[in-house]
Computed example of a mutant assay.
Amino acid sequence: MTLALCLGLAMVLDATFGEPKWLWDRVPHPAVLMGRVVGFLDKTLNVGDQRRLKGVVAMAILAMLALILGNVIATFGGVAEVCVAAVLLAHKSLVDHVRAVGRALRLSRNDARLMVARIVGRDTKDMSGSQIARAAIESAAENFSDGVIAPAVWFLIGGLPGLLLYKFTNTADSMIGYRTERYEEFGWAAARFDDLLNLIPARLTAVLFTLSHGQVNQWRAIATEARLHRSPNAGWPEAALARGLDVALSGPRSYEGQRRDFPYVNETGRKLIGAPEISAACSALWRAWSLSLGFVLILALLCI
């Protein structure tokens, strides 16, 4: 079974069943296990002097573990590869989480704040309806890139070892890749390696959003706005989805009580948005996913 065919089957499996709660209530999710490994390395190595070097060592350990595990699991054959890849993709669960914010916003702003707090790291307690919608759509764009397209790309490039290498790195970045006093040095390697691994997938995600909305003529504007974003990668899917939905994304927000005046992406887009725009973003995710699945299946046919 080729990697492309394995990936196509895994994408369909994930899109059909998502995250089976009955299973993860009984056994830890692989992402949870990865987090425990990162937490152990943080507790063990993130002390004393030369923390940047120790962070590099931590990433080397994670990379070695990912490559060993990936190769071991791959020896069990194509079915095992499909199942593990499906578990590590996160399309249906992403759409479900984003759609839940939209449903909550239709009922109560307070409920929507609680729901959006599950998928974003910014302050949510004083968010307006438009800010809630903007946060949900931004999360949809960024997480489609690093939760669906990036794992798929690295699976195609390196099979399960490549996929696990990406997931370990992304997990590490989400836990220690912050510019805080504790992680400025130790998390440097995780943040930089995650940026590197997401370089191509983020731009590919922007291409998928652009194609699925029939806005190829907007690519130059998307590229310009993406480079204004605070992140070297997240700006690409956000800029493309902002243009596709004709909404303004990014912009001012608050972290730990401190307001950050980030520039808007697609500033001329609509700023007064709500649940309908969240629903439109979910539909956009499915269109981009369908387009990516089509490309994967074509690749699988070419590789027969």
Rank of each mutant, 00 (worst) to 15 (best):
R118Q: 15
F155S: 10
N143E: 08
M59V: 08
R270L: 09
I200Y: 13
G214Y: 04
V12A: 15
G257H: 10
E184W: 04
I273C: 04
F17I: 11
V98S: 02
L33W: 08
N71M: 05
D173R: 07
A74P: 02
G39Q: 08
Q218A: 14
G78L: 10
E277F: 00
A80G: 09
F40W: 14
R118Y: 05
V116C: 05
P201H: 03
A58N: 03
A80V: 14
L165F: 14
N266G: 05
L249S: 06
W188Q: 07
P30H: 04
R99Q: 10
L285T: 10
T224L: 14
L196I: 15
T224D: 11
T224M: 08
T169V: 13
R192V: 12
N170V: 11
T180A: 00
G214C: 02
W289S: 13
A234H: 03
G48D: 05
Y178L: 03
V120C: 11
I73A: 15
A136N: 00
L114K: 14
S279G: 15
H91Q: 13
N71K: 11
D25A: 13
G48A: 04
R192S: 11
A221N: 13
L160A: 04
N198R: 12
L7N: 03
C83S: 13
I304W: 14
L41R: 02
A60Q: 06
T268C: 05
P30D: 01
V148W: 13
A172T: 12
S283K: 15
D96I: 00
F168D: 07
D146N: 13
F186I: 07
V32T: 14
H29Y: 06
L164D: 04
Y183F: 15
S250V: 07
N198S: 14
S292R: 03
L41N: 06
Y178Q: 07
A221V: 13
A60K: 11
G35V: 04
A239P: 05
D42Y: 08
G35L: 10
L33K: 09
R179D: 13
A172S: 15
K271R: 15
M1K: 04
R113G: 03
